[in-house]
């Protein structure tokens, strides 16, 4: 990895509220930061209960700060995975593929979180955008052969059907899991793009796993021998934010890389639904 990993700036304290209100002291340093984005903004990485809905805030910010990737924390409380999948994929469409989702368990069992992530990622992939053909002559808007019902009957969730938004420009939002236990870390393998780790013991477990199978690493407050794709940096005040922004190195690669996935040099990702039923059977033209 490079010596200066991507910075995930976790906005805490009064920063979300000030950004929601468009406070120029907070918005200006971020808006002035153009030409590259070696950093992204993380919304919702605060103590509970949250004051602002992270996805609504992320969307409003992405308009005010069109160069900044936005990452939204999802802990799933009272939030059905169909609603969550739809909202986060909408954010990804609106940001032009500059978004990610940080999953957290917050008291749920690792298998519950893993099932939730799995359902959400399956939904994100259920309707490939290339199935939209919009053929004026035949009147066929979408070839439904490509659309899969995720047909999920799990321990905690039952979800049938496909999502009502097609896949985004980066395929699906970048997925991260802020893992707190070894069980969560093991469950994250093959499931998410990146794991966030703040515990040296878990970092050791991650480092010991096969390099080509493990998710990428986001280090949170721990040394990581330059192995991390990104670092999570909690920020509590406008001063800390300005300091962090001033320290972000310029990166030439970003102008040619439109999506967060590309910025983070993550491989394309999809969720194999080939064993799942067609959502609408075979289409008759």
């Amino acid at each position: 990895m490079t010596a200066s990993p991507f910075q995930l700036l976790a906005l805490q304290g009064d920063l979300p509220g000030r950004l929601a209100a468009g406070d120029p002291d907070v918005v200006r340093p971020l808006a002035a930061f153009t030409g590259h984005s070696g950093a992204g903004l993380v919304l919702g990485e605060e103590s509970r209960p949250l004051r602002y809905d992270p996805a609504a805030l992320a969307t409003a910010l992405s308009v005010r700060l069109p160069r900044w990737p936005v990452l939204t924390v999802s802990d799933g409380a009272g939030d059905h995975p169909y609603n969550a999948a739809r909202r986060f994929l909408s954010v990804d469409h609106l940001t032009g593929g500059r978004s990610g989702v940080v999953f957290r368990s917050r008291g749920s069992a690792p298998r519950h979180t893993a099932e939730r992530i799995s359902v959400i990622r399956a939904l994100w992939n259920s309707w490939p955008i290339h199935s939209l053909v919009a053929d004026r002559g035949t009147g066929i808007y979408a070839h439904t052969e490509g659309i899969r019902a995720i047909d999920h009957q799990g321990r905690d969730f039952a979800v049938y059907g496909a999502l009502d938004s097609p896949t985004s420009i980066q395929g699906e939002p970048v997925s991260l899991w802020y893992v707190a236990t070894a069980e969560e870390l093991d469950a994250a393998h093959g499931l998410v793009d990146l794991v966030i780790i703040d515990d040296p013991a878990l970092l050791g477990r991650w480092a010991a796993s096969a390099q080509d199978e493990r998710p990428g690493l986001v280090a949170s407050g721990i040394a990581h021998d330059d192995e991390a794709t990104a670092e999570l940096v909690p920020l509590h005040s406008a001063y800390e934010l300005a300091e962090a922004v001033a320290g972000i190195p310029t990166a030439e690669r970003v102008d040619a890389a439109p999506s967060l996935r590309a910025v983070l040099c993550l491989p394309p990702r999809s969720y194999d639904l080939s064993s799942k039923p067609l959502a609408f059977g075979v289409q008759h033209a």
């Binding site: 609504a56 308009v63 909202r87 909408s90 469409h93 808007y141 009502d164």
Partner: peptide, 26 residues
Amino acid sequence: PGLGTAIAEHPESGLEPTILFADVLA
């Protein structure tokens, strides 16, 4: 919410409205 068979002929609901409006009202 939900994708119906009508998508073969035309779009229905798509982007989640609260997210879309947070964007366009800005």
